[in-house]
Design a protein around this nucleic acid. Structure first.
Length: 500
DNA sequence: TCTGGGGTCCTCACCCTC
DNA sequence: TCTGGAGGGTGAGGACCC
């Protein structure tokens, strides 16, 4: 264990919700819930005001609305969160080359490696300065934990929330941890927590008293040894700046369970294409294709197939995913489908010909089986193109920046000729009006969309309602929270011009 | 009117090879 | 030639994290 508390853990407070409040002045001090707005959406983040009503992450959005009926429910705008995160991470990298991002809003920093802190005093000073710099650069609050290890630094930042800083002095770890719940420790979730509770262990102190052998017996070797060490405050994991991705996957939860086998095949093909797109963007190829199916009763199964060599060929991934699907019983309905690739490599082994031959042979075998009696033929390549327009249900998930241009809703299939698509305006998405300028969608329905015209730094703006097909209203990109506006934009802080 | 999406890591079972 | 154990690869599922 380190002598000096120079590992810093940064945690942005209620990040997505705070960004929304900073971006939308009328929401400051109000309950804000960010998450999927579909019938199966869940809460990604709730502001502290919403948390007072019992709303928390991973809660079904419908339940959150019941608990907090006056809260503003918004879709996540990941492009904006990523931009803010980049600013914060850049500030961290000024402190040390050893920065380990955990997500958009969390990171570890090894201050000693950066020469910015070597003892408690300098670490505290650095932490306070960092919080001030983040506030100045983004307008957002961050909590900072400082300790001699990653685990303790994370515990410290958790204790410091919201908008605080806590340093755990070396030598005080065990006394500090002892009364805390076992759930405080990373790696102890609901299942392990319940397992330990049944054994009469609810606090970290009791965990330490149980002893390593007992914990190994209860939760297995790897987890048991790790838990015991953490209970003693021991953690020698280094801060790692670069981490290689191990898998890439995409998945969609459907608003309505899918029953039609052809539709399910089409969705799998579409997901395979999306997955390969992501795979290529990351500069990888992969060897093992994984199909994930969550059934109507929420039971989840995975099927995987390992190829002879890594690939980033969409046809190969599509074919493998289709073969895996053939082995899955989907009667009763499917609520989620996913396609993933693991066993990542930085290159593509030139063995695709052999893989395609194998895939072809398998497809032929499947076709033969189908013609022998039941309709199980593999969907022809290209079916994925049809999936986009003929798709039904739509993803209920919060993923993806909102806005009608970026995330068109998929509609239920119909025999009717497709009408002109009505523009859909997701709550929280950015828009621009030719006359009134930038704003955001407060709500929409029955052919109308309500927009609040305000921007970061402005006073709360006014609300106006338009027809959903108003030609003067367009989706737009988010404005920066702090700093110079784009050319032609009023500066942040300037009031939004209002007419009468 | 429950329960997202994108990950990581671990365990266990099974098969195959040596 | 048969048998058994060790160990690696693969496949499946569970737990956890943000």
């Amino acid at each position: 264990m380190r002598a000096a508390p120079t590992i810093l853990h940064l945690d942005m407070d209620a990040f997505y919700a705070s960004v929304e409040q900073a971006s939308k002045p009328s929401l400051r001090g109000k309950a804000v819930i960010v998450g999927g707005l579909g019938p199966r959406g869940v809460v990604a983040t709730a502001s502290y005001e919403a948390r007072r009503f019992g709303v928390h992450s991973a809660m079904p959005m419908a339940q959150a609305r019941r608990l907090c009926p006056n809260g503003a429910c918004l879709i996540p705008r990941f492009s904006l969160y990523r931009a803010v995160s980049d600013v914060v991470m850049a500030l961290l990298r000024e402190l040390s080359p050893l920065v380990e991002p955990l997500s958009l809003d969390e990171a570890f920093v090894d201050l000693e490696a950066g020469g910015t802190a070597f003892d408690a005093e300098s670490a505290l000073e650095t932490g306070q300065r960092l919080r001030a710099d983040i506030l100045a650069a983004t307008g957002l609050n961050a909590s900072v934990g400082l300790a001699g290890s990653k685990m303790l630094a994370k515990v410290a930042s958790e204790e410091a929330k919201p908008d605080g800083l806590l340093l755990i002095e070396p030598g005080t770890e065990r006394a500090l941890l002892a009364p805390m719940s076992v759930r405080t420790l990373p790696g102890v979730g609901p299942a392990t927590g319940e397992h330990l509770r049944r054994a009469g262990i609810t606090t970290v102190g009791e965990l330490a008293e149980a002893g390593e052998d007992e914990l190994v017996r209860m939760v297995g070797r790897s987890h048991g040894v790790g838990l015991y060490r953490m209970a003693l405050g021991l953690d020698d994991r280094p801060v790692v700046a670069e981490r290689d991705a191990k898998s890439v996957s995409v998945e969609d939860t459907f608003d309505v369970d899918l029953h039609d086998r052809v539709r399910i095949r089409n969705e799998v093909q579409r997901l395979a294409d999306r997955c390969v797109h992501r795979l290529r963007d990351s500069g990888h190829s992969g060897r093992t294709i994984v199909l994930k199916v969550r059934r109507y009763d929420f039971s989840t199964l995975t099927r995987s197939e390992t190829l002879r060599g890594p690939t980033d060929d969409p046809a190969v991934v599509r074919e493998a995913a289709a073969r895996l699907l053939e082995a899955v019983d989907t009667t009763g309905g499917v609520r989620l489908l996913g396609v993933g690739v693991t066993g990542l490599a930085d290159y593509t082994q030139e063995d695709l010909f052999a893989q395609s031959m194998a895939a072809e042979a398998a497809a032929e075998a499947a076709a033969e089986a189908a013609s022998a009696g039941e309709g199980g033929a593999v969907e022809p390549a290209g079916a994925a193109e049809a999936a986009g327009t003929g798709g039904a249900g739509g993803s209920g998930g919060p993923a993806g920046p909102g806005g009608p241009a970026e995330a068109p809703e998929r509609a239920e299939p119909s025999d009717e000729p497709e009408p002109a698509r009505e523009r859909r305006w997701a709550a929280g998405s950015d828009v621009r009006h030719a006359v009134y300028g930038p704003g955001w969608v407060q709500g929409s329905g029955v052919g109308r969309v309500t927009v609040r015209f305000e921007r970061p730094g402005s006073p709360p703006g006014r609300v106006r309602t338009f027809r959903v097909d108003d030609p003067e209203l367009e989706p737009s990109d988010p404005l920066p929270l702090v700093g110079e506006p784009a050319a032609g934009e009023p500066a942040a802080g300037e009031p939004v011009p209002e007419e009468g």
